[in-house]
């Protein structure tokens, strides 16, 4: 899933993005596997717990970078992060109440995949462009 042109130019952020893509890719493999759903449940649960924690750490680091470099789109970007965190939490709440349902998990994994590609492929690239423009002027 990860592509080299997704790099923004910060080692920390690029490493975290690669880890996110790796995890989401592994998640999709589990969700789309032919093995009985019961056998896959544990891995699905683990990934969801990972996502809940890792996105918080990653978003915090990325927002800190944006503030350090004076990124003008910080507030808008932070709001996009908040909305995504809320979506992940809402899904976690749904499974807490209703349990893991294969179709719901398929829908959720597709949503996370498209969100991650679009966010890193477009929104985060604006941070990279800003970072590079600062390097040129400094």
């Amino acid at each position: 899933m990860w592509k080299e042109h997704y790099r923004v130019g910060s080692d920390l952020i690029d490493t975290q993005h690669q880890e996110l893509f790796r995890r989401v890719s592994a998640f999709i493999k589990v969700v789309q596997s032919d093995r009985p759903w019961e056998e896959r449940l544990e891995e699905v649960e683990e990934t969801l717990v990972f996502m809940q924690h890792y996105v918080i750490i990653h978003f915090a680091d990325e927002e800190q970078l944006q503030q350090e470099i004076g990124y003008p789109g910080f507030e808008k970007h932070r709001q996009i992060h908040e909305n995504f965190k809320a979506e992940v939490q809402a899904f976690a709440k749904t499974v807490e109440l209703e349990g893991f349902n294969e179709e719901k998990v398929q829908e959720f994994s597709a949503k996370v995949m498209t969100w991650l590609i679009m966010h890193v492929g477009r929104e985060d690239q604006k941070i990279g462009e800003f970072l590079r423009s600062k390097e040129v002027t400094n």
């Binding site: 890719s25 597709a110 995949m113």
Partner: peptide, 27 residues
Amino acid sequence: MVRIMSGMEMTKLDAFVTSALSEVANI
């Protein structure tokens, strides 16, 4: 489209594929 995004071969229009398409259309 979903193979390009996920890096995995897709063989049927299941909930994963149709949800991914829904997201693309939504965006």
